[in-house]
């Protein structure tokens, strides 16, 4: 596996990207896209990144669905704050959360999830202490945010990556 196709998922994603960009599934495009995808995965192998291990694809799908619902819900919440509130952003504040997740890929996914959800943004992760600094737009009750992030996302991410 490590010879010709060091990163099969990456190669597959690149092939799909090529076919989508050209809007065609003809044999010529599939061959050209496959060659490019394999070459790119060799280039990636030369960089030798740490390989992620996805233990439970089912949990990853569940996480993706949950994140989509949460993004939709917080879109509505942030929109309501911007439009309705007389003094919007008055409750905004920083928040520190202790994390148990240590896997680098898990942390990367968590940072994308938190930042792409409106209303929360990932500011800083302290690798030595394992604490995460967040900025939250509607910081009324700190414990709710800590519970949400630790129980909704962190536990699933630890199941997937560790």
């Amino acid at each position: 596996m490590s010879g010709i196709l060091p990163y099969p998922l990456l190669s597959l994603a690149l092939l799909i990207l090529w076919l989508l960009l050209n809007q065609s599934v003809s044999a010529g495009h599939i061959i050209l896209g496959s060659v490019l995808a394999v070459l790119a995965s060799w280039a990636m192998a030369a960089l030798r990144p740490e390989k992620p291990r996805i233990r439970r694809p089912g949990a990853a799908l569940r996480l993706a669905g949950m994140v989509l619902i949460d993004i939709l819900r917080s879109n509505l919440a942030v929109g309501r704050i911007i439009v309705r509130s007389r003094q919007p952003g008055v409750n905004a504040g920083f928040l520190t959360i202790p994390l148990d997740l240590r896997d680098r890929h898990g942390l990367a996914v968590l940072s994308i999830i938190i930042t792409s959800t409106p209303g929360t943004i990932w500011v800083n992760y302290d690798a030595a202490k394992g604490t995460l600094l967040l900025h939250v737009l509607d910081l009324v009750d700190e414990t709710i945010w800590i519970q949400t992030i630790k129980h909704r996302y962190e536990r699933l991410l630890m199941e997937i990556f560790e």
Binding site: V78, I82, Q87, P88, G89, V90, A92, F94, T115, S116, T117, P118, G119, T120, I121, H135, L137
Partner: peptide, 12 residues
């Protein structure tokens, strides 16, 4: 929104 850190949330 009043401060920079609050404004960062808006474009998302």
């Amino acid at each position: 929104l009043g401060t920079f850190y609050a404004r960062v949330h808006a474009p998302t």
